[in-house]
């Protein structure tokens, strides 16, 4: 409001109500997107009658007392522990490639002999345990998780005693551990 006046000998001072202090504000948003990451260390292996040789992310597990003097399997319990960290949802499977220990060199087994030995596999991860028993075909257990997890994936291999007699040869299977960030 402005007022004006004029007159001889009259001075009118004009003033407005003082403005309230403005309080300007600015916002600054700081944001980051953190991707899911997973890592897995080579396994630590324990078990009587076994010998483990590390190679890359995996290795070779030798069953040093595979058969007894009667040419039948001896009981073996081996434990493989993989240290794993995943910061988000991830897929994790543990499987057998051949579905048991197969003689890689033999042809048709001789009468009264076998060329295949099944075993049990149990895998535990993030409070979940799943098991399978080999039956000659590839199989796997799924331990995928929808959130982050860290700790040890523990795989128990159990070969029962008394399978056989086994035809002479090299018996092998591949145990495949696959870890990926979830898509």
């Amino acid at each position: 409001m402005i007022r004006a006046a004029a007159g001889l000998g009259i001075l009118m001072a004009l003033a407005a109500t003082p403005a309230l202090c403005a309080a300007p504000s600015q916002m600054l948003t700081v944001q980051s997107s953190v991707a899911t990451r997973c890592k897995m260390l080579p396994p630590q292996v324990t078990g009587a009658g076994t010998n483990f040789t590390s190679a890359g992310a995996g290795g070779r597990l030798d069953l040093t007392n595979f058969v007894n003097s009667s040419d039948k399997t001896q009981a073996v319990n081996a434990q493989l522990e993989f240290s794993i960290v995943c910061t988000g949802a991830h897929s994790l499977t543990v499987g057998t490639q051949s579905g048991g220990l197969n003689d890689q060199t033999a042809g048709t087994p001789g009468s009264g002999f076998v060329t295949h030995a099944d075993y049990g596999l149990s895998a535990s991860w993030d409070n979940t345990t799943k098991s399978l028993t080999t039956n000659g075909t590839a199989a796997s257990v799924d331990l995928s998780q929808t959130g982050p997890a860290s700790g040890n994936l523990v795989i128990d291999l159990n070969l029962a005693a008394g399978i056989g007699p086994l035809q002479a040869g090299d018996y092998t299977d591949a145990i495949i551990v696959q870890l990926n960030t979830a898509q």
Binding site: S32, V34, R37, T87, G147, S150
Partner: peptide, 8 residues
């Protein structure tokens, strides 16, 4: 380790 996701 940081859980995956958006931080703000």
């Amino acid at each position: 380790p940081l859980v995956a996701g958006t931080y703000q």
